[in-house]
Design a protein around this nucleic acid. Sequence first.
DNA 1: CAAAATAAATTTACCCATTAAAGTAAATAT
DNA 2: ATATTTACTTTAATGGGTAAATTTATTTTG
Lengths: 418, 418
Amino acid sequence: MSRANFEQDSFDVASHGCGPAAPESDFEKKSTRKQVFEHVRGHGSVARSDIARALSISPGAVTGIAAELISAGLIHEIEDPKRETLVRGRPRVALAVVADRFHVIGIHLANERHSAILTDSIGTVLAETALNAHAPKRPFAELIDEIDLLIADLLKVSGMTMAQISTIGVGLAGLIDHMTGTVSWSPLLAEADVKLADVISDHTGTPVFIDNDANIVTLAELWFGGGRTKSNYAVMTVEHGVGMGLVLNNRLFRGARGMGLELGHTKVQIGGALCRCGQRGCLEAYLADYALIKEAVSALDLPMLGTEKTTIEQLAAASNSGDEAAQAIFDNAAKYLVLGLANIVQLFDPDLIILSGQRMRHSIPKDVDLRRKVDGLTLNTSTCEIVAHSWDGLVWARGASALALTAATDFFTRESRQ
Amino acid sequence: MSRANFEQDSFDVASHGCGPAAPESDFEKKSTRKQVFEHVRGHGSVARSDIARALSISPGAVTGIAAELISAGLIHEIEDPKRETLVRGRPRVALAVVADRFHVIGIHLANERHSAILTDSIGTVLAETALNAHAPKRPFAELIDEIDLLIADLLKVSGMTMAQISTIGVGLAGLIDHMTGTVSWSPLLAEADVKLADVISDHTGTPVFIDNDANIVTLAELWFGGGRTKSNYAVMTVEHGVGMGLVLNNRLFRGARGMGLELGHTKVQIGGALCRCGQRGCLEAYLADYALIKEAVSALDLPMLGTEKTTIEQLAAASNSGDEAAQAIFDNAAKYLVLGLANIVQLFDPDLIILSGQRMRHSIPKDVDLRRKVDGLTLNTSTCEIVAHSWDGLVWARGASALALTAATDFFTRESRQ
DNA sequence: CAAAATAAATTTACCCATTAAAGTAAATAT
DNA sequence: ATATTTACTTTAATGGGTAAATTTATTTTG
C-alpha cells in the first residue's frame, strides 16, 4: 500500500513534468466523408446546403464529398419530398443513402428464443426470423448451428446470398468484450472465453461484431428509437437479468475497458438476496424476472410450467386481479427499480433514462409517479426524463443490426476514397 | 417465425433516416501545437525527435511547432540531462516548458480549513498558505473575503502581483457545475445556485474555474500523482463525505451533464441509514466520517470536542487499542467501503482505483485483503488494481491548481498562434 | 587524424482537404 | 423580360501537414 505523505509524492516536476503523461489518444477524428454520409443517413434526405450548414463546412466541400459518395454508390440524388415550391431560388437537391448498396444481418441469441433480421443499408428490414432455443448452456459449436439456421432462413426469405452480406452483428447476454469479440461468460455458452466473433466470422466468411444485450438495446434506441435525438442517455433493461447501456455524446459508452455498466450486479444490500451470479445483494436479485419468479413460486404456488415470460405474465395478471402476494412482489421490485434508476441518475446524470423490457408494459408504476419517486432518492438539481419503452421482440435483432451497420459504414466510407 | 407488432416502432426509415441524428460533437480536435506543448510538459524534457515519434508526426512539423512555442516563450531548449554521450550522431536538444511563463493559484475551500498554493507554469509550488474556517454556512460575500486573505498571503510570500496570475482554480465540496462555474449547493455556502466562478473572477480580475472536491483530488492524481501513467482510473474519496472522480482516456469525466459521479449518494440499502442529504440509504451514511462520528458519539460516549478529524483519530486510536465498539464501527464502514469499490468496478471497469482520504492512513483493511474482498463482490474478469493514497493536506489545492493550469494552457497555446 | 557512420534537426518541395469567393443554374417575383 | 433569390459548382488560395534531401554535430573506424 502506498502510504506516503505529499512530500514524497511530489516528485521533481522540473525533470519529470506534470500533467497527464499519456496522450489523450487518437479520437479517430472522423473523416468529413464519413460525417457527411452519417448526416445523410441520420436525416433520411438532406440537401447539400443543409449538410454544409449542419456540419459547418463549406458548400464547396460538400459538393466534392457528395460527388465521391455518389460515385462510390453510397448515396444518390432523389426527388426532394420536402420541396417547397413557394420558395424562389434554385431548388435544393436532396441526397439520400442508397438503400441496397450493402446488406447486413443482426442476430440476437437468447435463452428462450433467438431472433434475426436482414436489413439494407438504411436499416429497412428485408427479412426476419426466429428460432426457439432450449438448451440453457451449449457448446459453441451448437450455437453456430443455430446461427446457421437463422442465417439460412433470412437468406431464403430475402433471396440473397451470403456473399451479399457485408457484416453480421450479434447480441447475447453475458460478459462480452466487444473490442476483441470475446465472450468471457454467457448463460448460453458452456465454454468461457470464446472468441465468438472470430468463430462466426470464420464460419460465414463475413466480418462479425458482438456485444452484450444491454448494449444492443441501447444501440437500437440510438439508431431507431427515442435516443436518436438525445446526446446523453441511459437505457435500463429489466428482463431475465438487469442490464444497462449508456450513450455519451451520441456514442455508445462501454466502460473504461469495455466491461463496465453491470448495473444488475451492483450491490444494493450487504449480505442481501442471493443472485444467480453467486453473490449476495445484487440489484438483479431483487428486480430481474428470475428473482420475481423465485418469489412467486414459493409465495403463490405458481406452477413453473411455461416459459419465464409467460410466468411473469401470469404473475402480472394475478397482481392486476387483486392478488396481494403478487402485488407485494411487484411493489418490492418497483422499489428496487426506483433505486436502480436513482443510482443511474446520481452516477451518470443523463438527460433521459429509457426503461426497456417486456414488463414495462404492465407492471411498473406510472411514468409520472416513477419520476417523482426517483427524484425523492436523488439530490441532482438537473432533471432527468424517464420513459418506458416496450419494444416488441425485434429490438434485440434491431440493435444487433445497428452494430453491423456501424461496422459496414466504417468499411464503405473508408473504401470509397481512392 | 413471428411477425410481431414491430411495425409500431419502426418509423419510416427511408424518410427519416436511421442512426444517431445528432452529430458526434466537435471533439475539440486538439491542435498539434497544444499536443506538443502538453507532451513536453508531461515529460519534463524531451527532444524534438522523441516528440515526433510519440505523437506520430513528422520531425519537420515538430521543428516548426517548437519554433512557434519557443518564440511565444512557452518552451525553451535546455541542456539535456539524459544526454548519453556514448551515442553517435547529432546530439538531441531537449525542450522544456518555461517555468515562469505564467503563474496560477489553486484554492481549496473546506469546512474546517482552507488551503491555497501558487505555482508556476510547470506546477512548482512557489507559495502555500492556509486559513482556519469555522462558519459552516456563510454568505458568498464572506467566502470572498476568505479567498482574498488566502490570495493576499500567497502574493506576499511569492512577491507577485495579481496581474501576474493567469488563472485561478477553486475546489469545494458540493454540487458544482464546472462548465457554468455555478455552485448549485455547497455545505460552505448559505445561498444556492451561486455563480461562484464569475463572482470571484469579477472580484479578482482573473479567470476562475471551479470544481467539486472529488474532481480536484482526481485532477491532482492525474497531474501529479499515480494517475499520470494510467488512462482509465477512478478515485474514491472518504472524508467528511464520500466522493468519486473518474478519468477516462486521460481525461476527467464529469458525467453526461457535469453533475454525475455522486457515489456518496448512491443508495445501498432501501430505507437505510439517514444521510445528511436528508435521504435514506446513501453509501455516505455508512461510510463517511460524519456517519462514523455519529455512531461513535452514541456508542462510545466520545466527547464531541475537537474537530471531525481529531475525533476520527481518537476513534482509530480506540480501535487500535482493542476497543470493540470502535472496531465494530470501522469494520462496518470497511464493509461499505468494499461495497462502494465493487460498485465502481462493476459500473466503470477502471484499471485502477485510488483510495484517497486521511482515514486511509490507519483504518482500512490491508491492500491485498481489500482486493480480495472486492473481487468477492464483483464478477468482472478483468482485474482492477486498488491502492490507497493518503496525500497531505495540499492535495486539494494541488488539484485546484491543475484546474487552473489546464485553463492557462488552453489560453496560451491558442494565444501563441498568429 | 581524416573519413565514415550515425542521429537530430532543418529545409525544401509537395500534397491534400478545405475555404472563400466568383461563377453558374434554376427557380420565383416583379 | 428582368431582377432576385437560393442551390450548387468551380476555381484559386491556404494552411497544416508529409516525405525526402540537406545540414549539423557527434562518435566510430581505418
